[in-house]
Design a protein around this nucleic acid. Structure first.
Lengths: 161, 161
DNA sequence: GCAAGAAGTGTTATGAAATAACATAACTGT
DNA sequence: ACAGTTATGTTATTTCATAACACTTCTTGC
């Protein structure tokens, strides 16, 4: 990803086989419980995100959508992404214009990432926003969502540099 | 900005007259000290940001650039924004695709905003990233920059809602 | 069951955001 | 003044995202 990065292996390999099936099944059952509809296009986009080795651009998803190489129409994918974000199955990484499946258990309204500028990996983590949150509320703000994106070098790329 | 927001006054009025001149002069002298070149296009974009009542889109800047109504070419504005961000005179708000002048004194590599989803105001604040920073470094990451964007309602819009 | 509304999809077209590439001009240090 | 670097001007293109509308599928109250 970065200009001086020569990694061949991804820091975050995508799911496949049983692991992928399990992750999809978990989403299916979660949607059944909440009466949300994980329709075919939504499910397909979720699969693509889970299979990916890293953050996926919307137009990568569009290109990869069809099983036979046929691309999707942009609104198909953007609508699916809206749904997946809304349900907490995916996150948009603003500073990359890219999307990742949610790796955290408790789907909160918070998303925080450590983004490697060398290999492009995006590691989700659970931030403690308590201080910022408290400060904002003290100033009279009603905070709804918080996005945090830290950029730098992941352990592997730090060593190499 | 928001669909159910009827505010006429901005929460953050832009600078004009002496205040604007002072702010620009401060940037000029800061650049003189650091031997950076606040060239005409860069200065013009900085002025536009300072004059604005809120976050400016790049194409708003492009449209407003010429004194006589003539728009700028996109690269002119994007290059100026790169410069202004690099020196800490401006910040990009990722979740809005928009830009604001820096309101903080010490130009750090950190930018944090409280963004009102109703009136569109973006209030910059000085976050305490120490905990997140420490956690990231402990995990082996070398953090370079951190962006935090909290979305919700500002005090004025909270009352109205 | 079935009508009425809501939610989802397919499709065409367009709008908005950002950059590539290359030629020219202006500073900088020697 | 010259060589190297930094900045600008310009054209074109690429990338990212949504508007609008017709149609289908769910759902829910009767």
């Amino acid at each position: 990803m970065g200009v001086d990065c020569h990694h061949t292996e991804s820091a975050q390999p995508g799911l496949e086989g049983v692991a992928l099936a399990d992750a999809v099944a978990a989403a299916v059952s979660k949607c059944e419980r909440t009466r949300d509809r994980l329709t075919p296009p939504r499910r397909r986009v979720l699969e693509l995100l889970l299979e990916a080795d890293g953050p996926m651009k919307a137009y990568d998803l569009i290109a990869a959508y069809g099983q036979n190489g046929a691309p999707a129409k942009p609104p198909t994918v953007y609508r699916a992404l809206d749904f997946l974000e809304r349900l907490g199955f995916a996150h948009r990484i603003e500073s990359l214009n890219a999307y990742v499946p949610c790796r955290m258990e408790g789907a909160s309204h918070r998303a925080a990432f450590l983004i490697c500028e060398c290999c492009g990996a995006a590691q989700e983590f659970e931030p403690d926003f308590a201080p910022q949150f408290a400060a904002a509320e003290a100033a009279g703000y009603a905070v709804r969502t918080v996005t945090l994106e830290a950029r730098g070098l992941c352990p592997a790329c730090k060593v190499e540099a």
